[in-house]
Design a protein around this nucleic acid. Sequence first.
DNA 1: GATGAATGAGGCTTCATTCAT
DNA 2: TATGAATGAAGCCTCATTCAT
Lengths: 222, 222, 222, 222
Amino acid sequence: MAKFTPRRERERQEHIRHILNVAEAIFARKGFFGATMRQIALKAEFALGTVYSYFRDKKGLYEKVIETKVNELVDVVTGEMTSAPSVRAQVERFIYTKMTFFLENLAFLRLYLADVDVPRLDAEHILPKKLREKYNSMVRTLTDTIEQGIRQGIFKSMNPKVLARTLDSLTNALALSWLRSQERGPIENDLRIVTEVFFNGAAIHQKPTQHYDNIKELDNES
Amino acid sequence: MAKFTPRRERERQEHIRHILNVAEAIFARKGFFGATMRQIALKAEFALGTVYSYFRDKKGLYEKVIETKVNELVDVVTGEMTSAPSVRAQVERFIYTKMTFFLENLAFLRLYLADVDVPRLDAEHILPKKLREKYNSMVRTLTDTIEQGIRQGIFKSMNPKVLARTLDSLTNALALSWLRSQERGPIENDLRIVTEVFFNGAAIHQKPTQHYDNIKELDNES
Amino acid sequence: MAKFTPRRERERQEHIRHILNVAEAIFARKGFFGATMRQIALKAEFALGTVYSYFRDKKGLYEKVIETKVNELVDVVTGEMTSAPSVRAQVERFIYTKMTFFLENLAFLRLYLADVDVPRLDAEHILPKKLREKYNSMVRTLTDTIEQGIRQGIFKSMNPKVLARTLDSLTNALALSWLRSQERGPIENDLRIVTEVFFNGAAIHQKPTQHYDNIKELDNES
Amino acid sequence: MAKFTPRRERERQEHIRHILNVAEAIFARKGFFGATMRQIALKAEFALGTVYSYFRDKKGLYEKVIETKVNELVDVVTGEMTSAPSVRAQVERFIYTKMTFFLENLAFLRLYLADVDVPRLDAEHILPKKLREKYNSMVRTLTDTIEQGIRQGIFKSMNPKVLARTLDSLTNALALSWLRSQERGPIENDLRIVTEVFFNGAAIHQKPTQHYDNIKELDNES
DNA sequence: GATGAATGAGGCTTCATTCAT
DNA sequence: TATGAATGAAGCCTCATTCAT
């Protein structure tokens, strides 16, 4: 009935993007419950109802905020890894790209960690399966890389899934400490440490250890 | 009027403990905002007003829940470390004790990670300074241990604070992945891997690497 | 500018008629408050603004829906009565035509009963006086007929206004029961009953009764 | 834990009764959607939250308003009928008691007719089944009475269910016309007329009629 | 005239907290 | 001290209506 209006559609997309950005900042600052739809609407310079015309409800807006960024993160990280020449380079790119992305999206990082990483026990997982799968695809890519590395004799013969999860957690962990520390020194240092620890460990090299002896003794404590 | 203090006081402490336990479970399941004071009072089999006679308000109750557990965690971990014979054993005890505590307090873990680890940008940090300091004291103990290890030539000469933070975060992150994965296999494996990676890294040992060469090439990307 | 009036005007009338039909169905299904202008616009395949270009506002549209149908009802019933040869035939045509109309317009019937018949106590009578008068004109026609019947010795010497209202109510009442009962048997039966009861009553004929004796005794109850 | 507090319970019941009365008046005046919970709370001199502590939500309050009155109506009418000596007296009591109740509860009448009598097509029948059944029990009592009357040769051999429904609807419909007419003259007249019409009809007695002859002619019209 | 995005008033409901008993 | 009824602020969301294109 109406002609295909590319301008309308373009504006619509711009508005959505704009609201998402505003919402990201506010959600990150106040958390899901602390943020109010009115605040978001005001900051976005739209009427309350307008925000609702773009997003079904608060939860829908919130999910879209996370989803948009997670997709971005995963696409960037996966893309960079794919184009790396060697297993080692792929792993390094994973570390570097992921953490750089976090650093550039601290507001998102907060949301990501609060809600992607800390699932509620309840059924009502705020984040939809779809998103979780997207994220898992990134970890799977890393797993594949590590598996390849094991076959090439680069990595120790450990469970590649656990190893991938460990590296993923390690990068999350470091990003977390950025969040906590007011003073964020040059990121290069942290990157170097993660990489060094993951590849070579913190200890000075020495003969293989039986360092679990003493742990066994602790088994029977609360 | 103060005659009966001993019994009264004893009961009071029991009630507080009871409410804290109930509150922990509910907060963990529903989150701070999802939980209601009425639910907690009901489950604790006290009147609403009674809960308020023990805790100033919801936030106060919440903080006390976290504080109690964090104190416990820190005391247990620090205590175990202190009684360990060597630097290496101390670090291993840190890993083992902390993660065992988490595993035994999954409900708490959720709260801890959501609110201790992911601070809000806003002033209204839900957790009080006092608690943060308590927690930091544990990390400081680990820092001291690592520093000692560096002096003893056990650890590489890296910033001990960063290294400690890394290990602390790494254990947090690994605990997180437990939370996520439904199937929690024998924890021993994960512990072994974390320990192995932290000490010796994932890579098969070889000559010291200049593995940052290729990362430099990535510097100009988003 | 007025050149195209005929076609324009014709289209305009068609659109109005179309929207009225759609609105009738939706109002009947959801009630005045349950229906939304957007729903109506969507189902009518017009833009929201277009509906507003035809009707001042929601209330205006609603009134027009009712008005159109009530006018139709009154005109059909009155017309049929006028062309009937005798008082008795006129009354029978009233019953028959009105109830047939209802049966053929169940959606409207719902609206009619909900809002025409159940006026709000408040000033904000949804229906305008105009419409009420139109309806009353139908009842007045019936009153006249009955009055004539009384003069002709066909009807008992009762207040013709009350008698007319009673018959009008009786037909409404039966229509109501159609609305309630899922299974609507052959309408003929119901028509027969209304007619029979109105003319001859439910009782087997016998001598005039003093059946109010016992009712007098109930006068002093709540 | 607390002693069985009869006073609390008594107050509670009083408050509920009070709110129900206030709500009845406001719902009757403004309709379900026109009324607001705040209005009701204000008029009842309770805080908004207090109303919600007595009734789950608006719909719950509304239903309770109707339910309370319908129960009263049915109990009064059924009670009166039961104590009447003859079939005729029972029917007269039905008419008299029901209509007197309506007259004394005009506010309720409006609600009753709007929602009991005019069900929405949609699933979301506002009134619960329970209530509908209660009401039906009254109509069934009337049906039984009429059935008995038919066996005793007092009523014509018509379908007693239809006859009961007709009388029930007739009284509803007559009550409606009271609502409409500003001037409510002595109710006795209307009662007398309804009773007379129902029992004996409006027509002067004469031989049985074949008054459907002319209706047949109308069969082919819309 | 037709469109539908934008508006914002206003309703329902929840729940932390208080306080009289 | 324990109780839980009462309070009311505050948030989410809907939807009639307007108006620029």
